[in-house]
C-alpha cells in the first residue's frame, strides 16, 4: 500500500525547523516503553515515530503502591516517571533504536530548569532529531507541574532548552489549566517548533465496596487517559491551534479512524496514540493502514490534501 501518501511534514515556518514523519501516527510516551518492546507484535514501519518513555537526568524507580486503576472509558496512572536515566538511555537504548532505524522523539522530564538544560545538551550532543519536553507530568510532586502551568516559567524553560538544543523542539502541554492558549503562546515564543497535547488529566480513581461488615476502599490519584478524555483533548487542540502558528501533535483518547478526522478538524497536524495501545498493541499500524486505505479509495493524493479537504471542504 502507498504509505508514502502519509508522509507528514511538521514545520516551524518562522525558523524552517522541520520534522519529516513517514506517517502522522506516533506512539505516545509511556505507552511504548523504549520503543523496542512492541517489535514482537507489530510492524513498526507504519509509525511516523515513537515517543520514548519520559527520560530524566538520573534513573528513577517511580512510585510505590498501586500504579494503575481502570475507570469507565480509560485509566488512571501514577507510574512516577520510572526510567533508566539519560546516561543509560544513550548507552543501552539509543544504539538499538539506531540499528533498527526506528524514528523517535526523545521525551524528557526534569525537576529543575538545570535538569532540562542538561538533558537538552545531551540530546544535542547525541544528534537526537526531535525532543518532546514533558512540562506537564502530573505525577511528580516537585517541578514538572509548575513549569507547564505558568506562561512565564514555561517561556523561560523553553528558551533555555532552545539555547542548548537546535533540533526539532516539541513542548507537550498539560490540560490541567484554565488557559491553554497562553501556555501554547509562551512555548511558541520561547522557541518551540511544535506543541503536543494533551498530557493526562488529573483524576482520582476510587474503589469502595461493602464486604462483611466493613468498607473496603482504595484511592488512586494520577493522570487520567483513554477515550474518556477525547472531548477535552479536542477542545484543547482547537484552542492551541487558534493561538499559535507552529504545528500541533494531538493526543487524548484516539483509537479509531474517525478520531483522526475529528482531531484534524480541531487543528491536528499529526497524532499520538497512547492508552489504546494497551487494548490493541497493533492499533498504530492498523490506524495508519486504515488511513492510507481511506485516502486511496477516496483519491486524496497526500495527507496535506486530506487535511485541506477536512478543514476547507
Amino acid at each position: 500500500m502507498g504509505i508514502e501518501k502519509l508522509k507528514t511534514v511538521l514545520k516551524n515556518e518562522k525558523t524552517n525547523n522541520t520534522l519529516i514523519l513517514k506517517t502522522p501516527i506516533i506512539g505516545a510516551s509511556g505507552t511504548y516503553g523504549y520503543n523496542i518492546e512492541y517489535a514482537d507484535f507489530i510492524n513498526l514501519d507504519y509509525l511516523g515515530a515513537i515517543s520514548t518513555k519520559g527520560i530524566t537526568l538520573e534513573s528513577r524507580l517511580g512510585n510505590d503502591g498501586d500504579r494503575i486503576f481502570e475507570v469507565q472509558g480509560g485509566m488512571i496512572n501514577r507510574i512516577g516517571l520510572e526510567n533508566v536515566g539519560i546516561e543509560n538511555f544513550i548507552k543501552e537504548k539509543l544504539p538499538v533504536l539506531k540499528e533498527k532505524k526506528i524514528d523517535f522523539l526523545l521525551n524528557i522530564a526534569g525537576n529543575t530548569i538545570e535538569d532540562y538544560e542538561k538533558l537538552a545538551l545531551i540530546a544535542s550532543q547525541n544528534e537526537i532529531k526531535a525532543l518532546e519536553v514533558n512540562v506537564s507530568c502530573p505525577n511528580v510532586k516537585q517541578g514538572c507541574l509548575e513549569f507547564g502551568l505558568n506562561p512565564e516559567s514555561l517561556f523561560s524553560l523553553t528558551s533555555k532548552i532552545r539555547k542548548n538544543y537546535k533540533g526539532f523542539l516539541i513542548v507537550k502541554l498539560s490540560p490541567n489549566t484554565s488557559d491553554i492558549k497562553s501556555l501554547a503562546m509562551a512555548a511558541e515564543s520561547g522557541g518551540a517548533d511544535c506543541i503536543s497535547a494533551i498530557n493526562t488529566l488529573r483524576g482520582l480513581g476510587v474503589d469502595i465496596k461493602y464486604i462483611g461488615n466493613k468498607f473496603i476502599k482504595k484511592m488512586v490519584q494520577g493522570g487520567l487517559s483513554g477515550s474518556c478524555i477525547k472531548p477535552v483533548a479536542l477542545y484543547m487542540v482547537n484552542q492551541i491551534k487558534n493561538a499559535v502558528k507552529i504545528p500541533v501533535i494531538a493526543m487524548g483518547g484516539i483509537c479509531k479512524l474517525s478520531d483522526l478526522f475529528e482531531f484534524i478538524l480541531a487543528g491536528a497536524d499529526a497524532f499520538q496514540i497512547g492508552t489504546a495501545n494497551f487494548q490493541t498493541p497493533s492499533i498504530c499500524t492498523s490506524l495508519a493502514l486504515e488511513l492510507c486505505e481511506f485516502m486511496e479509495k477516496n483519491n486524496f493524493y497526500d495527507f496535506e490534501t486530506l487535511k485541506g479537504a477536512i478543514l476547507n471542504g
Binding site: 517511580g62 507510574i79 495501545n277
Partner: peptide, 29 residues
C-alpha cells in the same frame, strides 16, 4: 493488575533484590 501485559507501561512492577541491587521488575514481562 496490568495495563499493557508486555512490559511497556510499568504499571505492575514489584521490587526485587537481584545481584545485590534493588530494582523494579514487571510482573508481566
Amino acid at each position: 493488575v496490568m495495563a499493557c501485559s508486555i512490559g511497556v507501561c510499568r504499571g505492575c512492577v514489584i521490587k526485587l533484590i537481584r545481584n545485590n541491587k534493588i530494582q523494579n521488575y514487571s510482573v508481566c514481562k
